[in-house]
Amino acid sequence: MSSKTLIAASAKPIILSILQTGENYGYQIIKRVRQASGGTLEWSSSLLYPVLHRLEKDGMIQSHWKISEKGRMRRNYSITDLGRKELIVEKERWINVHNVLKEFWRTAEALD
């Protein structure tokens, strides 16, 4: 339902928020997003992986390869200190946006 630009803009804080709770891998992140949004936010691997790599390149997350229970190679990602700091900044930005919108909608409802 969400527009492409909004999905792209929200990808970074969402990924950092998920990794804040612990190490995770690509497909699991996609599933967590799907569950949390009740299916309204549907990420694809072509969206997620380039963002993960960008965040890793920027030093906000790090990765290491592991062997999964099924014996396949799997890359796990975890948040770095820089990523945590960035998450605090991002959180503030999104809360600000959220508050502004809430205020406007509240006024609009009152006028109605």
Binding site: Y27, S45, Y49
Partner: peptide, 14 residues
């Protein structure tokens, strides 16, 4: 190659 391995892992899981 490592990107492809990663994509394949996600594909298989799903």
């Amino acid at each position: 190659e490592n990107y492809i391995i990663e994509l394949e892992e996600a594909l298989r899981e799903e």
